[in-house]
Design a protein around this nucleic acid. Structure first.
Lengths: 172, 172
DNA sequence: GGTCATTTTGTTACACTATAACATGACGTG
DNA sequence: CACGTCATGTTATAGTGTAACAAAATGACC
């Protein structure tokens, strides 16, 4: 688990700030994906890149068939399975996560490090914060260990209200 | 959070023992459901009871359409929505849980207490252990709090290999 | 360049999961 | 027994995901 070099801020920045330059996020994510795939000898083909881009362009997690619709808008309408194949590849490469509780996908914020992520999902605006929380992972590992259970992976998706929506609710 | 009166064993019994009297489990779950619904003024109608029984009879989590098939075997084939309605009721009453990562349902082991459960799911045999682990819940609450996120609920589903299947793998 | 194995994509069809909308029936209360 | 409410039936459809096989692209090697 390599840690980012910068220190954690007091109020941990889990959610992206509203009004940030999201085009930059998308561009960064794509170039990082190109780099990682090149390093690994994995082929980031056209449709895979397009799907990754569409996943990132969406602020909220996006469904496979929504991706399909967006592809159709740009001229081609692949079969559903083409989208799922691309998503499978992207998930194998750790570039995309799937939210089991939503049947939806979102770009991974740190695809360079191998990780088990957890998610905070806002019921109000649909935005998602990706976590890599040691205490949660440790608590899971500990409890599983005490039950003699060998952990292979986990789904941790926390529903609730994000800070911005809480403020909005109080103001309203 | 009322706790069971018996103490926790050294190796915490999360998974049901193989070869236990499962008919007894089913019967107990049904009578407890009857009692709870009567207390609450909720109507445990025939189809709801049947669905609950089928969920409990299955050792592993069971899909809605599998329930439908089993109902069909006993003479009637309701529309899918009838099964989903029954499951919705049972979930509202805390008698049944849904596993988001499997699109499947299982009987709740302690429907009398209001709780957020976590699950250990064996990839090998499909058996599931239901947890109510304080440390996991605390870690989630803590992390969410630091992000300014108000938790409404969570999905915690841990995949891996259960103790019995680990032993079997080592033996084979 | 040509051949081959491998990977990726296309095509078609289908399986599985879940809900909408409206009609009918059961149930308890006054 | 009339009424409102809750539960179920009926029909149709939306949404999510995969199987199976054919065709095409790619890269390594001769």
């Amino acid at each position: 688990m390599t840690k980012s070099s910068r220190a954690e801020p007091k109020s941990e920045a889990a959610f992206p700030r509203r009004g940030h330059d999201h085009h930059r996020c998308v561009a960064d994510a794509l170039s990082q994906a190109e780099r990682l795939c090149a390093q690994r000898g994995a082929r980031l083909t056209e449709i895979r890149k397009q799907v990754l881009e569409l996943v990132w362009e969406s602020h909220a997690p996006i469904g496979a068939y929504q991706i399909l619709e967006k592809l159709a808008e740009s001229g081609k309408r692949p079969a559903p399975i083409a989208v799922y194949r691309a998503l499978d590849f992207l998930m194998e490469q750790g570039l995309v996560h799937r939210l089991a509780s939503r049947n939806a996908f979102l770009g991974c914020g740190h695809p360079d490090t191998n990780h088990q992520a957890q998610f905070l999902i806002c019921d109000s605006c649909g935005s998602v914060a990706e976590l890599a929380d040691t205490r949660i992972v440790d608590a899971i590992a500990d409890r599983a260990g005490r039950s003699g259970f060998a952990v292979a992976g986990h789904v941790v998706e926390i529903q609730g209200t994000c800070p911005d929506c809480r403020k909005a609710a109080h103001a309203g």
